[in-house]
Design a protein around this nucleic acid. Structure first.
Lengths: 229, 229
DNA sequence: CTGCATCCTCTTCGATACTG
DNA sequence: CAGTATCGAAGAGGATGCAG
């Protein structure tokens, strides 16, 4: 009975399944397409692996997630049809958050790894040259070991996020504060304005630089009209 | 930082506000129209008053709830526009729960006071005679002090739920198990079928008895097609 | 009755380290 | 790579008390 609300109401039943700590974010990761334990971890980096494992088991028991052994000792996690039907709810929560939560509160939770992980999922390859492109992001205000990140966009193999130097020729350097890049990603600021105010500096292939607002696929909520400050 | 997910993602920000324990149910109560502390308590009877008070304060600070002094030492709690916009999310959660949570799990959480409180909100007066009507519900399988409940429907003053005998002439007695009445309310069973299988017995004004399925306004989720058992 | 505040116990979460 | 094990701290629930 512990953890249960003791209510037959379907809202209460759903809340028991969906509103445990971290669970909505975990479902977000699954909806975004992550299937492996360590990919999921990258999306919820501050969640302990113990708790992640526990939540996945709970979601499986609740019929939201199913697993498949893809190799010895290696599982993948996917959403069941019941889990897929959570998409409008999770996205609805995001839309509400974008509309009503003060943007300052969001910008108090900066995280470069998380931002790069999101950007690697949103990046569009069509506006980029039809070859492998290496984009380097430099967050000047961070301690040195968290300053540099790379996105590799390859027309064949897709987009990859690198937290250590891949050792390739860099096509574009984007230097800014982590806050600036996060604000751009969230739709609070445009590339144009950031450059114009000297908050963002682009160095490298001019063709790629001018298209940045296009290939940088923003947060799914970036276009939602804000009501809160 | 405790309680925070440390993520700028709007889903995370919304989750921090909305997915604290009891909070979705509390918002449900506010959406249903309860404004007073003790009315809210009736909707979340197993929540301690301390925690209820704390959650209301948190929601006020988050801009979901505002308060107004309506008398000395008496506040009312209402949803702000931001809170009103949570309706599709909370109702969506209920719809998901109705579709995908096993009905047996819901029926493990029977609660007569909660059921009567819900029924008093859903009851429709149009199908009833145009006078004050007293409906008594008798849950035979419960200990004596939780067997009897009353709904008073008055065309002028609305519907009232009574947990103690109001001492009026009863127009209709409905005798059944708590489980049966809950299943009917949730749309898992019809009045017709329950009577036919001997699970529900109606005594009193025939005119009111035959209209029961109509004046008994079911759960808002009763009509949603179930996918789980 | 309404609207909390306090005290205490029990559970859960997070941090960190460790294993097949 | 894919998780378990351990332990201290924070948080929830229950009982009770109290002011207006």
């Amino acid at each position: 009975m512990r953890g249960s609300y003791g209510q037959f109401c379907p809202i209460a039943m759903a809340t028991e399944v969906l509103c445990a700590r971290w669970t909505p974010l975990l479902i977000r990761e699954l909806l975004c397409g992550s299937t492996r334990f360590n990919d999921l971890r990258r999306g919820v980096p501050r969640m302990s692996p113990t708790l992640l494992s526990k939540r996945l088991t709970e979601l499986e028991k609740a019929g939201v997630v199913y697993t498949r052994e893809i190799a010895k000792g290696t599982k993948e996690y996917r959403l069941t049809p019941a889990g897929q039907e959570l998409r409008p709810l999770i996205m609805g929560m995001g839309a509400w958050g974008q509309r009503w939560v003060e943007s300052e509160l969001s910008l108090n939770n900066l995280d470069p790894e998380l931002l790069i992980w999101d950007m690697h999922r949103g990046l569009k390859i069509e506006p980029l040259p039809e070859r492998r492109v290496c984009l380097q992001f430099v967050f000047l205000n961070l301690p040195e070991h968290r300053q540099n990140y790379w996105l590799l966009a390859d027309p064949n193999s897709g987009v990859e996020a690198c937290y250590v130097d891949p050792g390739l020729d860099v096509d574009l350097y984007a230097a800014c504060s982590l806050r600036t890049m996060t604000a751009i990603w969230m739709g609070l600021l445009t590339v144009q304005k950031a450059i114009h105010h000297g908050q963002l500096e682009l160095t490298g292939t001019q063709e790629i630089a001018t298209q940045m607002q296009d290939w940088l696929g923003l947060s799914p909520f970036a276009s939602i009209e804000r009501q809160a400050g």
